[in-house]
Design a protein around this nucleic acid. Sequence first.
DNA 1: CATGAATGAGGATTCATTCAT
DNA 2: TATGAATGAATCCTCATTCAT
Lengths: 194, 194, 194, 194
Amino acid sequence: MAALQKSIEKRNALIAATIELVNNNGFHATSMSKIAHMAQVSPATIYLYFANKQDLVNKTYIEVKGKYTDYAFETYTEKMPVAAGFEIIWKRIADFKLKECKYAMFLAQCDNTPMIDETSRQEGIKHLQPLLDLWARGKDAGIIKPISDYLLYAYTINPLSFLMMSEKRGAFKLDATHVEEAYQAAWSSIKVPA
Amino acid sequence: MAALQKSIEKRNALIAATIELVNNNGFHATSMSKIAHMAQVSPATIYLYFANKQDLVNKTYIEVKGKYTDYAFETYTEKMPVAAGFEIIWKRIADFKLKECKYAMFLAQCDNTPMIDETSRQEGIKHLQPLLDLWARGKDAGIIKPISDYLLYAYTINPLSFLMMSEKRGAFKLDATHVEEAYQAAWSSIKVPA
Amino acid sequence: MAALQKSIEKRNALIAATIELVNNNGFHATSMSKIAHMAQVSPATIYLYFANKQDLVNKTYIEVKGKYTDYAFETYTEKMPVAAGFEIIWKRIADFKLKECKYAMFLAQCDNTPMIDETSRQEGIKHLQPLLDLWARGKDAGIIKPISDYLLYAYTINPLSFLMMSEKRGAFKLDATHVEEAYQAAWSSIKVPA
Amino acid sequence: MAALQKSIEKRNALIAATIELVNNNGFHATSMSKIAHMAQVSPATIYLYFANKQDLVNKTYIEVKGKYTDYAFETYTEKMPVAAGFEIIWKRIADFKLKECKYAMFLAQCDNTPMIDETSRQEGIKHLQPLLDLWARGKDAGIIKPISDYLLYAYTINPLSFLMMSEKRGAFKLDATHVEEAYQAAWSSIKVPA
DNA sequence: CATGAATGAGGATTCATTCAT
DNA sequence: TATGAATGAATCCTCATTCAT
C-alpha cells in the first residue's frame, strides 16, 4: 500500500514536472533529464512509468484534459435549461482557464503540436460529450444556431484559450468585466437571434 | 545585382524550407541541416543570412505574418463603412487561412510556442493596425461593442485558426456555407444588437 | 527438498533462457532483464544464483560444454580399437551438433568472444580427455599422425562447427551423405596413410 | 586533394580503431565513443563516414575480408596445376592468418555474430571464387574429392582459424613444422587417395 | 529466498554551430 | 560569398546491478 502510494506520487511528480517545464520552455527544450531532475527521480525511472517521451507527453495531455473536462461539467446537470446550462459550463471553463492556468497553458501548447498523437486527441475530446449534447438540445429547441459543433466550439470555447494566452503574455489583463463581456460575445455568436 | 538577386533567392529558399519542414514535422524535428538540405544550401550558409536557429524561425514568422496582413487588407480602404469594411477584411482573412494554408498552418504552430519571442510577436501584430482602426470607428459609431480589441480579435479572427487546423486534421470540411455561417457568428459576437 | 528442487529448476530456467536469447539475438542484445523475464523470475533473483552477467554466461558455457562432452562419449569405451572408437566419438559429436543445434549454436557463439574467460574455457575442455587419450593411443599404435592435439582437433572436430553454422545460416543442407563424407575427410586428415 | 586524402585517412583510422577494439574487447564492449577516441575524432564524426554502428562494423568486415582474399590469391594464377595451386593458396592463407593476425582475429570474431548481416557476408565471400574454381578443376581431374565446397572449406581453410585463435589464446605455439603438418592434414582430407 | 522498484553510468545518435578553405 | 567537414554538448534511452521489503 505504501509502495503503491509512493508509485502514484512519483507518477504525479513526473506529470507535474512535465507540465511545468513544457509551460516554461516548450516541448522542444524539455528534456527527459530535466523532467527527471525536477521530479527528483533518476532519468531511468521515468521509463518505469512511461514507455518513452511521446508516451509521457501524451499521458500528461490526457490527464490534464481530464482535469479540464471534470472541472467544466462539475456543476452542470443535463436537466438544466439550454441557456442556463451553457452559461454554467462556459463560466466553469473560463474559470478553469484563468485559475488553473498552469493546466490551461499546457493544453494550449498541445493544440498545434505533432507531439500529441491523434489517438490521445480523440481520447481527450471524448469527455466533451455533455457539451455536445447540450448543443444538440439547443439546436432542437431553436435556441442555438443549427451549425456544426466545430463552429460552435470555435466561437465560444476556443476564444478563451487565446485570451488566456494573451493574458499570460502580459498583453492585457482579464478581469471579471472582461469575462462577462466575453460570455456575451460567445453567446451572441451562437444563439438564434430573437 | 545578379549577386543580390541570388542572395534574396537563397534567403527565400531558406524561409520556404523552414515553413515546409515545420509544417510537416514541427519545430522539434526541424533541424538546421534539413532546412539547408531542402534549400539546397550548406548548413554554414544559413548563418550568413540568420544569426542562429531562433533568428531564422522568428524572421520566418515575421515574413509570414507580413504576407498574412498584406493579404488581409489588400481590398480594404479606410473609407469603407464599418460593417462592409469588416466583412471584407474578415473574408480576406478567411480566404487566406483556407487557401494559403501553408502559411496559415505555420502561423498556427507559432501561436503558443516559446520559440517565437515577444519582440517578433509585436512586430507581427503591428500590421494589424487598419483592423484596429476600423474597430475604433465601429465603436465610436455604436456599431461595434465597446470592448477590448483582444476580445474582438478572440471572437472574430482567432476562431478561423481553430477551424483551419481542424480541417487540416481532417476532422471536418469547411465549405462555403460554413464560411458564411462563421462570418455570421463572428459578426454577431461583436456587433451591437439592433 | 522441494525448495532445493525449485532452486535447481530456477537455475535451469535461467540457463535455458540465456541460451535461447543469445542464440537468437547474440550476446550484445541479451540483457539481464530479458533473461529474467524469459525465465519468469525477477532480475534481482538472477544474482542469487550467479555473481553477475559474466558469471551467468560463463556458467552457461560450462554447462552446455558438459552436455556436449557427455553426449560425445556416451557410447564410447576405452577398450574400443582406435579407429572404431574415433568413428564412434566423431559421429556422436556430429549428431550433437546437428540434432542439439540449440546447444551447438550457443557454443559456436562462444568460440571467439572475450565474453568467455580462459578459466571457463579450460574447465570446458577438461572433459575432452577421453578423446585426447584415444588420440594418444592412436599415435602410439602408429595409426594416427604424431601431431599436436590442437591440429587433430582443428581437422576433425572443429570443421563440424563450421558446417553446422553454415547450415543454420541456410547456406547449404547437411544430409547423411554429407556427414559420411565429412567423416571420411576428418579421418583422412589425421590417419597415418597405409 | 589534401582534403580528400585527410578524409581517407580518417576513414582508415576509424576502421583500424574498430578492428583493434573489437579484437581486444569484443563487439559488446566496443562503443562508438571508444572508437572515436582511439581514432582521435569526435563521436559525431563517425557518422560522416558511416551511417551507424552496424554499418561501420559491416564495412570494416568487408574491408578486412578484402585484404584477406587479396593476400590469398596474390601469388596464384589460374594456369597452375591443381595441387600446386592449392598449396600456394593454402600457404598464403596460413601466412595471412599468422602474420596479419590483427585482421585474422577480427574475421574470426565476425564468424558467428549477428552483428554482420547476410549481405555483407555474401559480399565478403564473393572474392573466394578463384579457390572455388580451382576446386572445380581438381574435381574434374579426379584429384580432389567430389564433395561440397562447404566441406572442402571446412576441412582445409577453416581449421586455420581455430589454430590461429588457439595460438592467440596462448594455448600453443604454431611454428613452421606445425604449419607444414597442418597443410598435409588439409590436403589429405580432400585429395582423392592414390 | 525472492522481488519490484530504483538508479548511475554509459549506450548510440543528432544537433546547432564553427572554421579552414 | 559559400561551403563541407568537424565537433562538443546534449538527446533519448537501456543496462547491469542493488536494496528495502
